[in-house]
Design a protein around this nucleic acid. Structure first.
Lengths: 225, 225
DNA sequence: CGGCCCGTTGAAGCTAATCAATGGCCGTGG
DNA sequence: CCACGGCCATTGATTAGCTTCAACGGGCCG
């Protein structure tokens, strides 16, 4: 199973039509606000900065990460079009966020959300779902990292991304091999070698670095456990 | 840093006096309901079962986990006295929960919480904090599992537990080595060997399997990165 | 056309897993 | 009270898989 497949087909404490990451419109914040464009590798917000804004991806993709003391980078999540990020419990951002590619986001002041939630229980409900959705994704990430082989991790990653990008069997990766490695807790070499093995086994086709075809998603899914 | 130390000293979207896992009373659900006692290894709820109850640990300790297809077990969290668990977004529990030792919990029907949250924005606020607290813990768990050595993982685990149990430098472990291994994504042998190394380095003392002294928490903290 | 960055490939080393056996604690029963 | 048995933890030896170090290649942009 892929990480996000594991969370599919659940409903909400407040009724939720679908618990997958890609929330249906009715389950989503109808954020209104200015759209801002960030170019490749540009910082959207930094770890420790005051968490004044909430963002929703319109176009492009984003990585959220932390830098450890020795320089290693752990990517905690990728955000794709339709995803909301930057909604913190605390006063500050707990991760940094950067655009993976040229990315357009809607920017909303946090206060407008939290103030509204005090009055509007429907808004509060949506905020709750966002937080819980992130929690489920993070727990699935834990399952992915704990005692799983490189092949299992990469297969889970590809299946998850294919589902989230609704791209069918043709994946256009917005992130580099290094990004994938830092998300999966592997080295770039191991990611590269694993993809090569998948290719040799006929599990995937890689016409270009950032373009991957998944001709046999069933076999790939079995690798995910 | 320990996993939970990393989350300390933040405040809330709604003002939150302290964001650590061990919520202060004002930040906690004042759950009222019958208390139930579970004996060692007894199941409290199972993965996939209808999520009808929410639990709060009074005494003892609990593990939440999933069994993977090949039999491996990933523990996603431990719950200690004061912790609330079982609050799901979906209709079903996403993990199984078992008592680590003889454990007393308060049991509340979920409906009484979610119904109340529609009326009572203060209750909704507390539920939000619970969900976000779990999220932060899960994200810290990801940081712990991604590309960290066995020594780093074990050191982080000990520091985290010491803080959560408010036990100072004397830790009484409620869980077995196998539980620790399944939480850290290691084998029981590696956990054991790492503890022995720590002992030989004078970092810890282990008068009994389940009893660990931390005479040099500063040195231990440095191992956590 | 040239340089640079990213990805791939190769070889060697190391960490943790695996396989296997011993040791110690605890509960039970003699 | 002591002896036995079972379970959990520890320790040892070997193996496997991933990382590390290093070099090469290929695509993209100037």
């Amino acid at each position: 199973m892929s990480a996000s497949l594991a969370t599919a087909s659940t409903a909400a404490a407040w009724p939720m039509p679908q618990a997958g990451r890609m929330a249906p419109p009715s389950d989503d914040l109808n954020l209104v606000g200015p759209t801002v464009t960030f170019s490749r590798d540009q910082e959207i917000h930094g770890e420790g900065e005051p968490a004044e804004h909430v963002y929703k991806v319109v176009r492009g993709a984003v990585r959220a990460f932390r830098i450890l003391a020795d320089g290693r980078r752990q990517i905690s999540d990728f955000y794709l079009p339709g995803d909301t990020f930057g909604l913190e419990a605390g006063l500050t951002y707990r991760t940094s966020a950067e655009a993976l590619i040229d990315t357009q986001v809607i920017v909303v002041r946090r206060g407008s959300l939290t103030d509204g939630a005090l009055e509007d229980s429907d808004l509060a409900r949506r905020l709750w779902r966002l937080a819980v959705g992130d929690l489920q994704r993070s727990q699935d990430h834990v399952l992915m990292l704990g005692r799983r082989s490189a092949a299992e991790r990469v297969a889970s990653f590809l299946m998850d991304l294919a589902e989230r990008m609704k791209a069918g069997s043709r994946l256009e990766l917005p992130m580099s091999r290094q990004d994938i490695a830092d998300y999966l807790g592997l080295t770039i070499e191991t990611v590269s070698r694993t993809l090569t093995q998948f290719q040799e086994s006929g599990l995937i086709e890689v016409p270009a670095c950032r373009s991957i075809r998944l001709p046999d998603m069933r076999a790939l899914a079995e690798l995910c456990e």
